[in-house]
Design a protein around this nucleic acid. Structure first.
Lengths: 157, 157
DNA sequence: CACTAACGTTAGTTGCACTAATGAAACTAC
DNA sequence: GTAGTTTCATTAGTGCAACTAACGTTAGTG
């Protein structure tokens, strides 16, 4: 019934050799698999990825304006509005006008927001573990390091 | 003037630690950078990625129906139509009805299609090299191997 | 006080992966 | 040999994520 899209990189002799050499293709397909797993995990608890990133930013940097949150999470200001609406509906954050600057809102995480983040932490530990299951701890670090170097290089240049 | 979106994974103290631990986030951001570079390279010669994957499949497996091409390239049947229209417009392929099965078309690569593919090969060699610039040959292989194992694992189940 | 910039918000665009529906042709069963 | 099912190419459309534009409001700057 659930026919998952075929994201196997090397499709048993069917895949042209040239395609197997493209790192961007391998990254794209594998990244899509990862994203699907993470999204499903969030969906199972009525959340989505941006709930996590916003709560993480609030937990680690404290109350902030929406512009600050956008900078810290790279969720666009325009998209952040809906995310904060949802988080406020669940009482995980509070949104109040900033008395010092009437353009701003101050976003604060509630206690139940902190518990929600704990839940996400547990869920994501499982997700990461499932994704990286075939790799040893050393290999997982290698992967992070290699991708991190490429990321830094491409972001710089 | 061209202000690229900020896809630096670790944004200098601004990024919550929790986000830096998510492999799917690192993959997503780095994959987006790679995709942008590849897309720009194709765009510079009036092409796009799917032109390459279709020509690669034709070069390596010979003339084929659209359904076969879809299987080999994982370009959806529905999206393949436009790709083949574009390739036919440029005389890089020919699309003819299959006399043995009137439902099918037979897609054949022309000589100029083969030359177009050569051009893509050269372009992509440069793209891959630019993407993986900070990695040694050994490290590039490691990255392929690690991602390949994760991909196979996730595709399996 | 005029000007510019930053704030949150709404609306809209683009690209990509993916689904649904369709008419024509071909297999499959009885 | 005809009825029912499947495959084919094709058109249209959905869902989502990343991204842009425009706007009214408020705050700094000369």
């Amino acid at each position: 019934m659930e026919s998952h899209p075929e994201l196997r990189f090397d499709n048993g002799g069917q895949t042209p050799e040239r395609l197997k050499r493209q790192i961007s293709r391998l990254m794209g397909m594998t990244g899509a698999q990862m994203r699907r797993i993470a999204n499903e995990a969030f969906e199972a608890v009525g959340a989505r990825k941006d709930h996590f990133v916003v709560l993480a930013a609030l937990a680690e940097f404290g109350p902030a304006s929406q512009a600050q949150l956008s900078d810290r999470t790279r969720v666009y200001r325009s998209d952040l509005v809906a995310v904060l609406n949802e988080l406020a509906d669940g009482r995980w954050i509070e949104r109040a006008p900033d008395p010092d600057d009437k353009r701003r809102n101050v976003i604060t995480m509630t206690d139940s927001g902190a518990r929600r983040l704990d839940e996400f932490d547990r869920i994501l530990a499982g997700v990461n573990d499932r994704i990286m299951a075939p790799l040893s701890p050393d290999e997982r670090e290698q992967l992070f390091a290699l991708l991190g170097r490429i990321n830094a290089h491409l972001a710089a240049g």
